[in-house]
Design a protein around this nucleic acid. Sequence first.
RNA 1: UGCCCGAUAGUAUAGUGGUAGUACGACAGAUUUUGGUUCUGUACGCCUAGGUUCGAGUCCUGGUCGGGCAACCA
Length: 554
Amino acid sequence: MAEERSLNFLEEIIEEDLKAGKYTSILTRFPPEPNGYLHIGHAKSICLNFGLGIKYGGKTNLRFDDTNPVTEDTEYVDSIKQDIQWLGFNWAQELYASDYFEQLYTFATQLIQKGLAYVDDSSAEQIAIEKGTPTQPGVENVYRSRSVQENLALFAEMRAGKYADGEKVLRAKIDMASPNMHMRDPIIYRIKHAHHHRTGDAWCIYPMYDFAHGQSDSIENITHSICTLEFIPHRPLYDWCIEKLEIFPSRQYEFARLNLTYTVMSKRRLLQLVNEKHVTGWDDPRMPTISGMRRRGYTPESLRDFCDRVGIAKRENLIDVGLLEFCVREHLNKIAVRRMVVMDPIKVVITTLAEGFTELVQSENNPEEAEVTYRDIHFSREVYIEQEDFMETPAKKFFRLAPGQMVRLKSAYIIKCEEVVKDAAGNITEVRCSHVPESKTGGANAGMQVKATIHWVSAAHAVPVELRLYDRLFKVENVGAAEGDFKDYINHDSLHIIPNAYAEPALKTGTTSDHYQFLRKGYFCVDKDSTDDTLIFNRTVTLRDTWAKEQKKG
RNA sequence: UGCCCGAUAGUAUAGUGGUAGUACGACAGAUUUUGGUUCUGUACGCCUAGGUUCGAGUCCUGGUCGGGCAACCA
């Protein structure tokens, strides 16, 4: 089943480690900070970390990196857990960096005892100045030479709450002249008199990322700690802590994060979109968040397939959102139930049928199914078809309905346009057609060749529904590379609401499905805003439309 | 001016010294009671200059280009 595929560089490393006997099994982790909702970029990391665990018979922990109480919240913890499970993954253990606060405090004191950490009384500004620049070495200050005893006492006082925020920090004593800025005596503990979502008010000092992440990995015996490229310069510090503390040597590896065309992928920017009401929330169907995509109608399968196809490497990338759309179409084509909905109606009267004529026709629920099932649809003398499926003066290569032309009404009769009725202003109000008798499925004339088959809804039986059509959130491909404020590139036309589309009754009364294909229009799902009175559908993605492409060519 | 990472069709991603593959996209055609699906075909690529070698996308050196690194963020 699994096709022979080349290994990515992480799989190669793991296979070498396993082969060399370095590990008997692997343990990875997914380490989100609970300060925002997960997006498709996180999905790539989730699929990678959990996927590796599954592929090599190992396990994967979920560990919340909650070392900064002022930005973190349990609301985010809950959404993150839900999103991971929805994607289809199970963690071995649910853990929190905050579980290790006591242990991390002990690690810090060990460093102090070894003369490898010191309490610094300098202000943030002073520390920044003394740090130097990438091209200029930093300088050592007077606090750097404090005695072990003094440092131990001071650090204990920090923990005890004797000092205000920012009054003191604990720094690792490494090398103020290092060409790597992160090695210039990085701050490892800071004072924050803040309420933590899990530890409450037990602590007023919190470890920095660099003093929490690697040690957490080590405590859990994580074998392969996988993160994104921007942490490459942190790796020497990651290794330094492990070496000096003499703890389990977890190893950090980095891969390139996902970037998608026509969207943004930073939590900061997504939060801004939410806070400034450019979207309705984190789960707005236009958002690249997992919750937004779920609401939009994307399936876990399609997201996993996408993450698989984008690959894992170290070079920066910008993935065409078209690939995502391909993945969702491919999955939805297999599972979506077919229904007919007319979005922009024009009335067709079939004059050769008796006044009040009505009958039931059968149409397949999904032609892709191994065993095709059918539903009944009311057909009658008056039906709605799409405005765009009729042209009074047809364009070249237009082979839908036009005066004197024939089309098939899906699962019903072939009709021929005989007359166009207009109002005083010259607008077309109605198209009058004749029908070909015996042209239904199984009829004597069913084999007649027509150039097109169009969808329709019986006028008398149509059910009004609301459709929400989404377009890309941004107007430019590479929002990250665009100059100026990213908000200048927001597509203000990204939501188009059709309050009164006409749907076939089966949509309301028939089998309920999570995913529908509205014939020839796209894939849709029911939105949570639906009420007993009004069904609301989100368009997940359109169908491939070669006719639209043809038209663009002009 | 320092350090680090990277560079293969339009976009991604393989190729581990021996014929540059794959996917999406594009284009053309076939099939189709969805201009959907499916199928077939076509076009398009190793950043650059040297070097090592019988042979270099791959190894070495220089250059160019892109990205990152100086939050009491992660």
